[in-house]
């Protein structure tokens, strides 16, 4: 019974945090420097790892698809397979997982240590709502940066697939043909649905990581436990939400 109550309490606290943060939304222009800093942390600093992983995921998709499809003369459809897979499923999920691991963990660690070392209490006594300066800029930044990261992941993944399909001997598919099927079968809606998913995943990851960080009590051990909890919860939520969003957007 106790674990169920703890989960319900966590959900309630997270919803309350969201409501309190949204109440401060009009103050966002005044948080411009913090917003820009968070855009840097979430977007720019995450970009290299997103690019590297996307490139190889696109490459592996092309390799695996080329190996199977070459046997029955359908290798020109590798472009459509990589295009759709990256845009609708792998791109947004991979970006969200990276954001959870790299950004979410850092957010939880920072807010948890601020809570444990009474910096959050200091803000409250100064009549500065923690939601306004700690949560709002992060949520706004993730909403701006997730589509950017997802688009870059798609593009790099597509080019990774093209390069592998062209250079691997047993596939040897011309880039023209690869991109022709990619363009023909990957519609704008496929890309936009993927961006919607990325947006939802990113928002939930940052909200959950902020909530868990701000609910931390205790000392250094609890900070570590909060980071683990935030990343695990984020990963579970990404995959669960992916199922329901995929179903809703089909």
């Amino acid at each position: 019974m106790k674990p169920i109550l703890a989960v319900l309490e966590g959900i309630g606290d997270t919803v309350l945090l969201l409501v309190r943060t949204l109440r401060h939304a009009p103050a966002l222009p005044r948080q411009w420097p913090r917003f820009v800093d968070q855009c840097y942390q979430i977007g720019y600093a995450t970009l290299p790892i997103v690019a590297i992983l996307s490139f190889f995921i696109g490459g592996v998709l092309a390799l695996q698809a080329g190996y199977s499809m070459s046997n029955f003369g359908a290798k020109e459809f590798i472009g459509s397979l990589v295009g759709l897979s990256m845009a609708r499923a792998l791109g947004p999920v991979m970006v969200a997982v990276l954001v959870a691991g790299r950004v979410g963990s850092a957010i939880t660690a920072e807010l948890a240590s601020m809570k444990v070392y009474q910096e959050v209490d200091a803000l409250v006594t100064m009549n500065i709502p923690p939601e306004r300066i700690l949560v709002l800029p992060r949520l706004a930044a993730v909403l701006v940066m997730m589509p950017v990261l997802a688009i870059i992941a798609n593009l790099v993944g597509w080019f990774g697939g093209a390069l592998v399909a062209h250079t691997v001997d047993f596939i040897a598919l011309e880039p023209d043909k690869y991109f022709e099927t990619l363009r023909r079968y990957t519609k704008f809606e496929d890309v936009s649905d993927g961006l919607v998913k990325a947006e939802v995943f990113g928002f939930v990851v940052v909200l959950v990581c902020c909530s868990i960080g701000l609910r931390t009590r205790g000392g250094p051990r609890e900070i570590g436990a909060s980071v683990t909890k935030a990343v695990v919860t984020s990963l579970i939520l990404i995959l669960v939400l992916d199922y329901f969003l995929t179903k809703a957007l089909l």
Binding site: Y117, Q118, D121, A122, T125
Partner: peptide
């Protein structure tokens, strides 16, 4: 204004 035991500086 509360001056915390450990300072609670940012």
């Amino acid at each position: 204004a509360l001056v915390f035991q450990a300072g609670a500086l940012f």
